[in-house]
């Protein structure tokens, strides 16, 4: 597979990837594909996200399985792969006495760009992340939010095919986080750069990612398009004006499982029976009519990422 094919299709393809440090097995067999677009790599702290990114970069050697990044095996063609990858690490340590523009330019040059192009693109990248006016400030004088933006600018300045962002919103306040997520979304959609964003926060992955890979205990628990994962719930969601308990009681007598969430009822077929949404809807219609309450909404149930996580027995 060529780089172009990989970019169109899957930017990362892992099959049975294993990694251990000493006696500690960190990745126990990762098998997953990362399509082009924005993919959230989701998992609790210590799940193996950063280790997996290190294998993608080819800076750590895997102990088993196969891995293709942009059509190359990073353990054999590491420099070629890394030349086309932008990387923003989790840590906030950056050289304090270096100006942001010099820092971004230096990393662009390391990725093979000539000096003049590096200077120009460093400036462009810093304007892109909103630090155009601040580009000649030493990094040591910048806030955590600005440092995260500097790292993002350094990751995209050399026009990579793939950007790896390790916890890009770590240490940001809610306003800064919203702004950073919007920026990542824009880089992924407007400039066509594939992004893998590692995070332990469900909400931010849910907001900006097209695809999700959930890692837990060193293995992939779920992977796929965000819409598919969220649409994977059976049953219906019902929103009523009032009379929730009355309707719920009627539905339970019809052998349906009912859970109340605020003004909503989640209705599904009770344990062990095959889902039959037609029957569930009919029962809801009848119960609401018999109770004489107003029905605001009845829609196929969609899951949140939290639901997906909980289904896998993993808390974020």
């Amino acid at each position: 597979m060529s780089i172009a094919d990989a970019t169109r299709d899957q930017v990362i393809v892992a099959a049975g990837v294993v990694k251990h440090f000493g006696l500690t097995q960190v990745l126990t067999g990762i098998t997953v594909g990362f399509p082009a677009g924005i993919t959230g790599l989701l998992g609790s702290n210590g799940a193996g996200k950063t280790t997996f990114l290190s294998l993608v970069l080819g800076v750590e050697r895997r102990d088993g399985g196969s891995l293709q990044v942009l059509g190359h095996d990073p353990s054999e063609a590491g420099p070629e792969v890394r030349a086309r990858i932008g990387y923003s690490p989790e840590h906030h340590h950056l050289p304090d006495d270096v100006q942001a523009a010099d820092f971004v330019r230096h990393l662009a040059q390391l990725h093979g760009l000539p000096a003049a192009a590096s200077t120009e693109r460093a400036s462009d990248a810093l304007w892109l992340v909103g630090l155009g006016e601040e580009r000649f400030r030493p990094i040591g004088t910048m806030s955590t939010g600005q440092r995260q933006r500097v790292k993002l600018a350094a990751a995209v300045a050399h026009d990579p095919s793939l950007v790896l962002l390790d916890e890009p919103t770590d240490g940001l306040d809610p306003v800064q986080r919203d702004s950073m997520l919007e920026l990542i979304r824009r880089i992924g959609s407007d400039y066509g750069i594939s992004i893998v964003m590692s995070s332990h926060l469900l909400e931010e992955v849910e907001r900006i990612c097209d695809h999700v890979v959930i890692i837990a205990d060193g293995t992939v628990r779920r992977a796929g398009d965000l819409a598919d994962l969220r649409g994977g719930g059976s049953g219906v969601t019902v929103e009523l004006d009032d009379g929730h308990e009355t309707v719920a009681a009627r539905l339970r007598t019809a052998n349906l499982a009912v859970e109340r969430q605020g003004s909503r009822l989640i209705v599904d077929v009770a344990g062990g029976f095959a889902p039959d949404e037609g029957r569930v809807r009919d029962c809801v219609r009848d119960a609401v009519a018999e109770a004489g309450v107003g029905l605001r909404l009845m829609t196929p149930r969609t899951l949140t990422l939290e639901d997906v996580f909980l289904q896998e027995g993993e808390s974020p």
């Binding site: 420099p79 070629e80 030349a83 040059q109 390391l110 990725h111 093979g112 760009l113 000539p114 192009a117 693109r121 462009d124 990248a125 304007w127 892109l128 995209v156 050399h158 026009d159 400039y191």
Partner: peptide, 17 residues
């Protein structure tokens, strides 16, 4: 000011790094 855009020029690879 064309803003951020794709780079299509030469890349120096390992020797450049």
């Amino acid at each position: 000011d064309l803003g951020y855009r794709s780079y299509t020029g030469e890349r120096a690879g390992v020797s450049g790094a």
